[in-house]
Simulated assay, not measured.
Amino acid sequence: MAEQGEGQEPLVDGVISASAAFEQGQSIAAARDMARDFLIALQRDHGLPVSERAMGMVELVVSELVTNARKYAAGPCLVQLEVCEGAVQITVWDSEPRLPTVQAPDPYRIGQHGLEIVMAVCRSFEIRREPVGKSIRATLVLADDPGGDVAGRQLM
């Protein structure tokens, strides 16, 4: 499980957020579960629309970014989800100071496609060097569903 103090923070200035620290021994699935629970709470507690596509894409992005943190950095990683103006920002911090390199697409390369995937599905993507380590932030629109269906909502 995530560390003490995890969870959803109250609505402040139109921003809803949640964060948790994940230790090296914890599964990546725990980070995905945290993201899914956060999005479900957005719908249930705040009435925000979250499409099925956005639900899946947020879980995918969290999984890819936490996988990279596990693979390349020692120690814990921090995951923060923040919603503002119909989009969710996913930020993953880790202690590794080296910035990741996004490789050119190559259909014959096996592995190392995670950042390519993240960049392809996100509205914006940013890598920042931090005083300790780095953070990667990806932004996805919550109600971005080509079929128009919204997860958890009954359409009449």
Rank of each mutant, 00 (worst) to 15 (best):
M1Q: 09
E3R: 08
Q4V: 11
G5R: 03
E6N: 10
G7L: 01
G7Y: 01
E9H: 01
P10W: 00
P10F: 00
D13G: 05
D13K: 03
G14S: 01
G14E: 02
V15D: 01
S19R: 11
S19T: 05
A21K: 09
A21Y: 15
F22M: 07
E23C: 07
G25A: 14
Q26F: 09
Q26P: 10
A30E: 15
D33G: 14
D33I: 10
A35V: 08
A35H: 11
A35Q: 09
R36N: 10
D37P: 11
F38A: 14
L42M: 14
Q43I: 09
Q43E: 15
Q43A: 13
R44N: 09
R44Y: 10
H46F: 15
H46A: 07
G47P: 06
L48R: 12
V50F: 06
S51H: 06
E52Q: 13
E52F: 11
M55W: 04
M55Y: 12
M57F: 07
M57K: 05
V58R: 01
L60D: 14
S63N: 15
L65P: 12
V66K: 11
T67L: 15
N68M: 14
N68H: 14
A69Q: 13
A69P: 15
R70N: 15
R70I: 11
A73I: 10
A73G: 13
A74T: 14
G75K: 11
G75E: 10
G75C: 13
G75T: 09
P76T: 08
P76D: 09
C77Q: 09
C77F: 04
L78H: 14
L78Q: 13
V79C: 08
Q80W: 03
V83R: 00
E85Q: 06
E85K: 05
G86A: 00
Q89M: 01
I90K: 00
V92P: 00
V92K: 00
W93A: 04
P97Y: 02
P97L: 01
R98H: 06
L99F: 03
L99C: 02
P100L: 07
P100G: 05
P100I: 07
T101G: 07
A104I: 06
P105F: 11
D106K: 05
D106H: 06
P107I: 11
P107N: 10
Y108Q: 13
R109H: 07
R109L: 10
I110A: 14
G111C: 03
H113M: 07
H113I: 12
L115E: 05
I117Q: 02
M119N: 12
A120E: 09
V121T: 04
C122M: 05
C122Y: 05
R123I: 06
R123N: 10
F125M: 03
R128F: 10
E130I: 04
G133V: 03
G133I: 03
K134L: 07
I136G: 03
R137G: 06
T139W: 03
L140Q: 12
V141N: 12
V141W: 08
V141P: 06
A143N: 13
P146L: 04
G147F: 06
G148Y: 01
G148I: 00
D149W: 05
V150R: 01
V150Q: 05
V150S: 03
R153Y: 09
R153S: 08
Q154Y: 11
M156R: 08
